[in-house]
Design a protein around this nucleic acid. Structure first.
Lengths: 186, 186
DNA sequence: CAACCATACGGAGAGTGTCTCCGTTTAGCA
DNA sequence: TGCTAAACGGAGACACTCTCCGTATGGTTG
């Protein structure tokens, strides 16, 4: 790629990252192009669709997922707290942008989606959590990572769209955890 | 209202019902006007916003909610089956149109929303189910109707957006039920 | 039944966003 | 320095939303 092209591409992604966060995923692309100091043609050549641009914007974010999971897996306490903690981290991860939870969660399991790579990273991270808990015998056997992603994603979507606070979200995540963990007889 | 105005209004709502179901809530309003054989001005006079039209389309639907709840409450079996059955009915109710679950669930708890009346009907219906179960001592005490609506709504949103089948949705609803019901020690 | 007018109609058009085409410019190389 | 493939960017076609206002008409009154 020519140096000027690379420069423009980087500028567009940087501007898009800010605009998407401030205005949501339906911000005007021509506007992003203008803010980045390029013509709309340039933006659309680099990113033929809105999702292609979104994909680029999310790239840096993907690395954070693995990191967060690594850290979560070091937790030593009770399974319930561990799982709820992970759920909260997961919700925070996919709620980086307004509309992000819906975008990511509805693309989950769809191989055709332009951001399917991003969702695979999320499912893979969740799979590690599932394996960890199942090795300890704490999780019901029929719980799958994809299902877990969808359910926590569902809560995140509602929280995102209704502007719920962490205090309103936590009890819902607790319900999910209780529904997925093996009953302890308490 | 003049007779011709009433006729036009009815035609618009009827067409909108079909178009919303087939194409989702972001269908072109000018297109709906054209299909109804009126000018865009006429449509916008009757329904100043998209949500106003949506509200009219949903009017008939509201009656079905109370009816469904009445029927559900007659169920005599175990609490878990009752609750899962209600969840399935609820998901079906709010999934009448593509995009419906998201629309309804994210408006829930927001008094300003143009469809807040519709969401109140749903929460009230769910409240009856909660009361019923709590009278039997089957539900955890901290479970609230609004929270229940949001969580089941979250699952419905994902199911709607990812085109999940009933077989994929049921296990998720079972997780919710297990997380909300009082542990039975089994 | 004729005349009137408040009510309703509907289309032209302004504003905004998406996306493409193509003439112009320029980076990188020989 | 000159060449050319690569990249630029803006004009403009197309789509959707929503409004304004001249025109048509339902319903009422004398």
């Amino acid at each position: 790629m020519r140096a000027d092209a690379q420069r423009n591409r980087d500028r567009i992604v940087e501007v898009a990252r800010v605009v998407f966060r401030e205005r949501g995923y339906d911000a005007s692309l021509d506007d992003i192009a203008k803010k980045a100091g390029v013509g709309p043609g340039t933006l659309y050549r680099h990113f033929p669709t809105r999702d292609a641009l979104l994909d680029a914007v999310m790239q840096a974010w993907v690395d954070g997922v693995t990191e967060t999971t690594d850290k979560a897996l070091t937790f030593e306490g009770p399974a319930r707290e561990f799982l709820i903690g992970w759920f909260e981290a997961y919700v925070a991860l996919i709620s980086m942008h307004k509309g992000g939870p819906a975008k990511l969660t509805s693309a989950m399991g769809d191989e055709q989606s332009p951001i399917s790579h991003k969702t695979r990273v999320l499912v893979a991270a969740t799979q590690r959590v599932v394996d960890h808990l199942q090795a300890r015998g704490a999780l019901r056997e029929d719980v799958e990572a994809l299902q877990m992603c969808r359910m926590v994603g569902g809560v995140a979507v509602i929280a995102d769209q209704s502007d719920l606070s962490a205090d309103e979200v936590r009890p819902m995540l607790a319900v999910l955890a209780d529904g997925m963990l093996r009953p302890t007889g308490g």
